[in-house]
Design a protein around this nucleic acid. Sequence first.
DNA 1: CACGCTATTGGATGCACGACCAATAGACAA
DNA 2: TTGTCTATTGGTCGTGCATCCAATAGCGTG
Lengths: 220, 220
Amino acid sequence: MSPSAPPKRVRKSPEARRAEIVGRAATIALTEGLECITMRRVAEDLAVRPGLISHYFPVAEELVAEAFGTAATDELEELIPAERSAGAALDLLARFFARSTGPRYDDMSRLWLNARHLSRFRPVLAERVAVQEAAWRDRLTGLLREGTAEGVFDPEDPAVAAILILVVLDGLGVHANTDRSNRPAAVTNMAVTTAERELGLAGGSLLSLVEGVATPAPTV
Amino acid sequence: MSPSAPPKRVRKSPEARRAEIVGRAATIALTEGLECITMRRVAEDLAVRPGLISHYFPVAEELVAEAFGTAATDELEELIPAERSAGAALDLLARFFARSTGPRYDDMSRLWLNARHLSRFRPVLAERVAVQEAAWRDRLTGLLREGTAEGVFDPEDPAVAAILILVVLDGLGVHANTDRSNRPAAVTNMAVTTAERELGLAGGSLLSLVEGVATPAPTV
DNA sequence: CACGCTATTGGATGCACGACCAATAGACAA
DNA sequence: TTGTCTATTGGTCGTGCATCCAATAGCGTG
């Protein structure tokens, strides 16, 4: 090989490149944290020069917000698909808990923690977090409403029930230090328990359903 | 004044200076966040040179951990005093909730969020967070045990009840974006509700007690 | 095949930070 | 008062970052 081979330039369409950048940034956000999304780092991962990243995202904060938005949107879609079959509210809720309380959710849980904290210093990100919070709340509320219409759930207020469930999930996710494997079952299952209570389900009924959900293999 | 007046040096005992530094850092942590604790910043606040700070804390991370530990320890002491009168478990618990769910707790809530996230990158801080988590859990557990011994509480397991309460508190604290003033009461009171349930108290009994606690004026 | 558009490069600039160190001056003891 | 100890200074150095820009080369168009 020539000693100073001028590196080959790969030229892509702006849309493709942009998507590539955001995708890579979202992965970094999930695995290493939002503060690891730097021009240099993303560029290195994609084998391009940092200047290119800043060409597509003149302000770094914009990329961070975009990365979070993408990751959160994708995860929500896996938790509760927007297009979902009718009459399956209970199953969908069980699926939701199976994933959101399992170890596969750890990265996402950390990402929420990360984003909420970083929002303090990054207004653009803060807006995105607010949007995603609303999206998650609204979609869960929608699911609860469906189940209520189907006569499966009987909440006082589906919107309040949704918030309570999300609050508990966030609380559980935040307790990273209380060694998760040593947690009492009452703690681990707290989100499901809250749901059962708020939705007027028999104690343990939802839990057994959740435990029956086969956790799908991680998407590689 | 002389144009280039050599600034006066104030010489203090290492203990006093060290305490001064940690105290200032703790204040910064509470009001602006742990990442704002920099050698330069703390030095400026104390009207000394940055080199002095790094003399007492050769590694910056150490100061950050110390600042968090101090802030958390002080707050816990205000929430549940270590030296407390016997036979007052219910009142103490009401006092605990009055403060930990009020707006005065916002800074502390944010600091926990901050510390938990930053722990990801700072091992020394992570250890401190784990220690503080244990301290908070243990002290609340102790209070619940006292109340149980007094016959006021009737939990299945005081330790589990304590964790559940703290999880809910953390979950509520994390939801900074869901505008707190617009929260349904069921959400705002969720921590107290959880306590009532886990401790076998009549619904609303603890809540009315909490609302009756006069929130003391902020310590200036 | 030649041309022009623009995606991409490579390098420069400035900033904030932690870390390090020899020199200095305050305070206390002799 | 003099002397000594050490708390404190006032720099320096290197790192990693975002941001900016003129030059370049890939690719579609004619």
